[in-house]
């Protein structure tokens, strides 16, 4: 990009013009890019009160079973470790399709989520199951690499067959107030994704305030995110209800303004059924049933699946379960 183009793109309105074609592709009307420094303010105490209302919902019987099955079907079963090997990934992929075969009729998870180097392996393993392969990219988890590297990282994963790309935003740049840089980076990666759906990880634990979470959500969505995602799982705190709630409200406002539906993926820290059900209650009441499918809502988790399975078996049998009876892969 030459100097003039770079200069123009540093002005919000021109940033928007560059990428409006992308918005149109989604079948929406054109929209103008807002001034992100003016994103809506969030009152944290009010958010906490609202969230506590979701946590007080009592989900029983058939609604609970329905919710648990939904949760299972929304999981991005994840392994993101330095010590990941094809062997580990293969085992996890098998688990993804065979959650608990002693109980037939269970759904599969939505996707497996791996590093780019593992995408090819995963793609082969889940073939024919309907399970998607998601890959983290853009120098996950820190994002501290040049754009060129991030683009190569992304293209590598897409070429290897990734259906979904989970990118990280540049938090340092965001916290320095360089919102246009963050916006451009997301839009550029979006282009590189091609047909793959783009999930944008805000890493809310590093953004700290809910005002920042809201602003980053807006930037990601206007830049073309198909999903916004809370965390990498490497930073605490991760997907708290307060953060997810703030992002859901942003998604709702974006839908109202542009007509475009964006998905949500809380990731990190949602390790048991109760938390998962609270999250589903929240999605149900803030966004409505349009979002209650794995096309629009995901849980990024590694240990959640087994806890949900144990709860489902408890409901089926009436007996409290032991982890010895549920496979760990």
């Amino acid at each position: 990009m030459n100097f003039t183009e770079a200069f123009l793109r540093s002005i919000p309105i021109f940033v928007g013009i560059n990428y409006q074609s992308m918005a149109k592709k989604k079948g929406s009307a054109t929209y103008s890019i807002p001034d992100f420094s003016q994103s809506p303010r969030i009152d944290k105490v009010g958010v906490e009160e609202r969230v506590s209302r979701f946590q007080k919902r009592s989900i029983k019987n058939e609604a609970k079973m329905q919710g648990l099955r939904m949760a299972l079907n929304m999981i991005d079963l994840t392994t993101l470790e330095g010590k990941d090997t094809p062997g580990k990934v293969k085992q996890m992929c098998f688990k993804a399709a065979h959650l608990h075969d002693v109980h037939p009729g269970l759904p599969t998870v939505a996707a497996v989520c791996v590093y780019p180097s593992m995408v090819a392996t995963a793609k082969k393993e889940v073939e024919g199951t309907g399970i998607k392969v998601a890959s983290v990219s853009t120098a996950f988890p820190s994002g501290q690499a040049p754009l060129e590297v991030k683009l190569i990282d992304t293209k590598f994963a897409v070429d290897a067959g990734a259906d979904e790309i989970d990118m990280v935003i540049s938090r340092g740049r965001f916290l320095s107030g360089e919102y246009n840089f963050v916006f451009d980076e997301i839009a550029t990666i979006k282009e590189a994704c091609g047909k793959a759906r783009l999930k944008v990880i805000l890493e809310t634990g590093e953004l700290v305030t809910l005002d920042n979470v809201r602003r980053a959500s807006d930037i990601a969505m206007y830049a073309g995110a198909d999903f916004i995602k809370t965390s990498t799982g490497k930073i605490q705190p991760a997907a708290t209800m307060q953060v997810t709630y703030t992002m859901l409200e942003a998604i709702r406002d974006f839908k109202l303004k542009t007509g475009i539906q964006v998905g949500m993926k809380p990731a990190g820290g949602i390790s048991n059924s109760k938390l998962a059900l609270h999250n589903l209650v929240m999605v149900n009441e803030v966004l409505g049933s349009d979002w209650l499918s794995n096309e629009w809502f995901r849980f990024g988790a590694s240990s959640l699946a087994n806890d949900v399975l144990m709860q489902i078996m408890k409901l089926e049998t009436g007996v409290y379960q032991s982890s010895d009876y549920f496979s760990i892969d």
Binding site: R57, K60, A63, R69, N73, P107, G130, S293
Partner: peptide
């Protein structure tokens, strides 16, 4: 083979 996608209208059961 499990169902791929279950989209539902989620109503809470009575919790008296």
């Amino acid at each position: 083979m499990a169902k791929k996608n279950e989209k539902i209208n989620w109503e809470y059961a009575p919790a008296p």
